[in-house]
């Protein structure tokens, strides 16, 4: 896919005919230097924005032809999101945040128990009824993981989920995602600067100047990326 921002003088080709595929159950890392187009790529896969050209297939469905309502519905049922900052709605409790995708889907049956179980699994059983702005950054990312999993999506997308956390907390979040992925056979596509925390993963895609390459960044680039 290709994504061009702006017009005329200010035109930026953030993605330049980038092609990649991720299989069911894989953890795929997207790495690359700042401004290379990682977030843009994730936005396209997450159907948060549309590519200028190219196609995105999720579960065999060509998503580029869907209208806004269908895309919303698709995001709700097939995708989970973990952002770098302010993932949660601060007006709701942690539990309510995790429940929200289910309520939007309108399939509430057994939702609360599943949400509680997920929150337990991410280690937040004591924080469930706190307001979302009353917990720490690491806890918020745990809650976001639980929210991302509640609708059993095809892919969970994360854009620098540890970008805002200290190294120790980052590591626990990375391990949590890895273990959840394994336990649930859940596909994850994760943009990260913390390549080494992840260790061994199924797939690594390096983005450079909007182009996608299979495999890790050359080590001299990793230095630049820091």
């Amino acid at each position: 896919m290709t994504k061009v921002y702006g017009e005329g003088e200010n035109k930026v080709k953030a993605l330049d005919d980038a092609t990649l595929s991720v299989e069911q159950g894989e953890i795929a890392l997207i790495v690359g230097s700042s401004g290379s187009g990682k977030s843009t790529l994730l936005n396209m896969i997450g159907l948060l924005d549309r590519p200028t050209s190219g196609k995105i297939y999720i579960d065999g469905i060509d998503t580029t032809t869907l209208d806004d309502n269908k895309i919303s519905s698709f995001r709700n049922k097939k995708l989970g999101f973990i952002f770098q900052f302010s993932n949660l709605l601060t007006d709701l409790t942690v539990l309510e945040n995790v429940l929200l995708p289910r309520q939007i889907a309108g399939t509430n049956n057994n939702a609360e128990k599943e949400a509680r179980d997920l929150l337990k699994a991410v280690g937040l059983e004591d924080q469930m009824n706190k307001r979302a702005n009353k917990i720490s950054g690491g806890q918020a990312q745990r809650a976001a993981i639980a929210r991302g999993l509640i609708n059993k999506p095809s892919i969970v997308l994360a854009d620098e989920p540890t970008g805002n956390l200290d190294s120790v907390t980052s590591n626990t979040i990375v391990q949590l995602m890895k273990s959840m992925a394994k336990k649930l056979n859940q596909t994850f596509v994760i943009v990260t600067h913390d390549r080494q925390h992840f260790g061994d993963v199924d797939k690594v895609i390096t983005i450079k100047d909007g182009k996608a390459f299979s495999g890790d960044m050359p080590s001299e680039m990793e230095v630049l990326a820091k």
Partner: peptide
């Protein structure tokens, strides 16, 4: 941003 989050996790314009 929170409206963006709601939209991301599937809330429709409506």
């Amino acid at each position: 941003r929170e409206i963006g989050v709601m939209r991301s996790i599937g809330a429709k314009r409506k």
